[in-house]
C-alpha cells in the first residue's frame, strides 16, 4: 500500500509539470521500470564518489554505450545477494548442527524451499551423480531471482529482474552452462552431434543442425524475455491502474483502481515465485539436457 500511495503522490506531483496525460503515464512507467543512477537521497550521497569514478569508465559493446556506474538495479541485485547471504549462511549452519532437523520455523521454511529446488528442479534433470555441483548453482539462481522479484514488490525498491540486461546476463550463464557442460561431458563434437537428436537421416542432418543451433540460442533468449516480460507487465498494469485516478480526475475511480492494483499486486507476489521457479527449472532442464546425448 505504501508503494501505491507513494506512486499516487509522485504521479500527482509529476502530472502538474507535464502537458498531456499520455506523456505522464509513460513518464511514470519509464521512471519506475528503467534503470538509472539513484538521485536525491542519502544513498545517492554515499554513492556519489564511487559513481564519479565508475561512471567515468565508459565502453561500447555492439554499438551500445555504457559505463560501470552503480545504478538502482545494481543496488537491488546487491541487496538481493546480501539477503541470500544473511539468510542462507546461518540457516545452513543451523541445519548442519541440528541432527534431527531444526525445530525453528524460520529454518524449516527455507529448508522446504531448498528441498523444493532439490526435488523439483535439480534431481529430475541431474540425477544423483551431478547433484553436488548442480545444487549450489540452481539454488543460487532460484533464490537470487526470487529475491530480486520480491524486492520489486517493496515500496521504493525496483525489480532488477524486470530489466533485459539483468535477465539476459542470468540467461547467458545458462547458455554458457549448456555449451560448457556439453563440451566437457560429450567432447568437442557435442556442438555437431550433441544438439541434434539421434537417428536423424544424414540428408536432414545439416538442416536440423542449423535449426538446433538456433534453438540453442533461442532457449536462453526465451528465458530472458519470459522473466523480463512477466516482471515488467505486472508493474505496468499496477501503475496504469493507479493512473486511472489521475486520468478521470475522480476519487471514486480510486476505489476501483486501488482494488484492482491490490489484486494485481497479489498476483505479482505469486508471479514472483512462479517465474523464479520457471526460470530455474528451464535453466536446469537446458543444462541437464546437454549432460547426455539424446
Amino acid at each position: 500500500m505504501l508503494k501505491l500511495i507513494s506512486l499516487v503522490n509522485m504521479v500527482v506531483g509529476a502530472g502538474g509539470g507535464h502537458g498531456g496525460k499520455e506523456e505522464s503515464v509513460s513518464d511514470v512507467v519509464m521512471h519506475h521500470l528503467t534503470d538509472h543512477v539513484v538521485e536525491g537521497n542519502f544513498i545517492a550521497k554515499i554513492l556519489e564518489p564511487v559513481n564519479t569514478v565508475l561512471g567515468g569508465i565508459t565502453f561500447e559493446v555492439l554499438g551500445l554505450k555504457s559505463n560501470l556506474a552503480i545504478t538502482k538495479l545494481v543496488l537491488m541485485m546487491w541487496l538481493a545477494a546480501f539477503i541470500c547471504i544473511i539468510i542462507f549462511i546461518p540457516v545452513a549452519r543451523k541445519i548442519k548442527n541440528a541432527k534431527y532437523g531444526s525445530s525453528s520455523k524460520w529454518v524449516n521454511m527455507w529448508e522446504v524451499l531448498v528441498g523444493f529446488v532439490h526435488d523439483e528442479i535439480v534431481e529430475p534433470n541431474f540425477g544423483h551423480h551431478y547433484k553436488k555441483i548442480a545444487m549450489p548453482w540452481f539454488c543460487t539462481t532460484f533464490f537470487f531471482v526470487l529475491f530480486c522479484n520480491l524486492l520489486g514488490m517493496i515500496p521504493y525498491m525496483s525489480t532488477a529482474t524486470g530489466n533485459l540486461a539483468v535477465t539476459g546476463a542470468l540467461a547467458s550463464t545458462t547458455l554458457l552452462g549448456m555449451i560448457v557442460i556439453g563440451t566437457i561431458k560429450q567432447g568437442p563434437q557435442w556442438i555437431f552431434t550433441g544438439i541434434v537428436p539421434g537417428g536423424v537421416p544424414l540428408p536432414l542432418f545439416p538442416l536440423l543442425w542449423v535449426i538446433e543451433l538456433m534453438g540453442l540460442l533461442i532457449k536462453p533468449f526465451a528465458l530472458t524475455v519470459r522473466l523480463y516480460a512477466n516482471m515488467t507487465a505486472g508493474h505496468i498494469v499496477i501503475i496504469i491502474f493507479i493512473f486511472l485516478v489521475m486520468m478521470f480526475k475522480s476519487a471514486l475511480v480510486g476505489i476501483g483502481s486501488v482494488a484492482g492494483a491490490l489484486m494485481i499486486n497479489m498476483l505479482e507476489l505469486l508471479v514472483a515465485f512462479i517465474q523464479a521457479y520457471i526460470f530455474t527449472a528451464l535453466s536446469a532442464m537446458f543444462i541437464g539436457a546437454s549432460l547426455h546425448a539424446h
Binding site: 512507467v29 519509464m30 521500470l33 528503467t34 534503470d35 565502453f59 559493446v61 555492439l62 551500445l64 555504457s66 559505463n67 560501470l68 556506474a69 552503480i70 545504478t71 538495479l73 545494481v74 541485485m77 546487491w78 545477494a81 541470500c84 547471504i85 549450489p136 548453482w137 543460487t140 539462481t141 537470487f144 532488477a160 530489466n163 533485459l164 540486461a165 539483468v166 539476459g168 546476463a169 542470468l170 547467458s172 550463464t173 515488467t232
Partner: peptide, 21 residues
C-alpha cells in the same frame, strides 16, 4: 526505454551472480 539493454548492468549482473554463487 523499457527494452534498453545496458552492457554495464549486464556486466554487474554477471559479477554479482558469479560472486554470490
Amino acid at each position: 526505454g523499457l527494452l534498453k539493454v545496458d552492457p554495464g548492468l549486464y556486466l554487474w549482473t554477471l559479477v554479482t551472480f558469479i560472486v554470490l554463487v
